[in-house]
């Protein structure tokens, strides 16, 4: 099996605190890989290191066969790593459609700078139309077509989460990093979001998922890696993780171990 993402001995320290310690993991193509762990175990830090927002001095990140260690955030995004944020980060004064269009900023550029864009009128009009049509197709796919011209600020929380996911999809990524996608959603919103993930997964996008909600993690992940205090303590299928004694003691405390085993 080919790998899409590989972390080799990633380490991140903030002063004396080691947030992530010598983390290695291999994510296969065509999988939904979840990274779980209690609060403060280094999950979001890991995502930050993968997509280039957090600098790190030790370790390597390989993406789709290429070493992307130390590359800038936007370069990594262009290579095909999309992401969503724990606290939605949308462009509040723009419409849903425009937000999605920004996600496709670097897709097949016919004009690479503004001067070119201004002089080659036909070319640029076509580029704009193509971008818009593509964004409309994404909206159709995520089921938000009727909201295209609404300002995102006026949307319900769940719909904003889906919009953000659509923006990531618009860049045609091979891999999307999902940072706590289910946080703050009610059960029906959660179902809608997960359905959208599954649809996108079936169409060919892989997911690296960080999540607190066990319901979501156990239902959609193919592989789960568990972190505790920045160190990997277990890895396996959802079933294996659920019965892993180390994981149970990390989440619930050692004294629950016997009860769960029963």
């Amino acid at each position: 099996m080919e790998t899409i993402l590989e972390l080799r001995g990633l380490t991140k320290r903030f002063g004396n605190l080691t947030a992530v310690n010598d983390l290695s993991l291999t994510m296969r193509k065509r999988s939904i890989h979840a990274l779980i762990g209690p609060n403060g175990s280094g999950k979001t830090t890991t995502v930050g290191m993968i997509n280039g927002t957090l600098p790190y001095s030790v370790g390597n990140v390989m993406f789709d066969g290429e070493d992307i260690t130390g590359m800038k955030n936007h370069t990594i995004a262009r290579k095909g790593v999309g992401r969503t944020f724990q606290n939605i980060k949308l462009f509040a004064t723009m419409t849903v459609l425009e937000n999605i269009m920004v996600g496709g900023h670097t897709l097949n550029p016919r004009s690479t700078n503004i001067v070119q864009y201004l002089f080659r009128v036909n070319n640029s009009l076509r580029e704009e139309t193509v971008l818009k049509e593509k964004a409309e197709a994404v909206l159709e796919f995520i089921g938000l077509k009727e909201y295209a011209n609404r300002e995102v600020g006026s949307l319900a929380y769940g719909l904003r989460k889906i919009t953000e996911f659509g923006r990531a999809l618009m860049g045609e990524p091979k891999l999307i990093l999902l940072d706590e996608p289910a946080a703050g959603l009610n059960p029906s919103e959660r179902v809608a979001l997960i359905d959208t993930f599954i649809k996108a997964y079936e169409r060919g996008t892989d997911f690296f998922l960080i999540e607190h909600n066990m319901d979501v993690v156990m239902n959609i992940s193919t592989v789960i890696t568990v972190l505790n205090f920045g160190t990997k303590i277990a890895e396996g299928t959802p079933k294996e993780i659920q019965t892993n004694p180390e994981v149970i003691s990390a989440y619930l405390g050692r004294r629950y171990l016997k009860e769960v085993a029963r």
């Binding site: 936007h74 462009f91 509040a92 723009m94 900023h105 670097t106 990531a168």
Partner: peptide, 18 residues
């Protein structure tokens, strides 16, 4: 749109490849 994106939420701009 990229300019407005910078104003609205600069953290999300690089993840759009900008």
């Amino acid at each position: 749109r990229a300019f407005i994106a910078v104003r609205d939420n600069s953290d999300a701009v690089p993840s759009c490849g900008i």
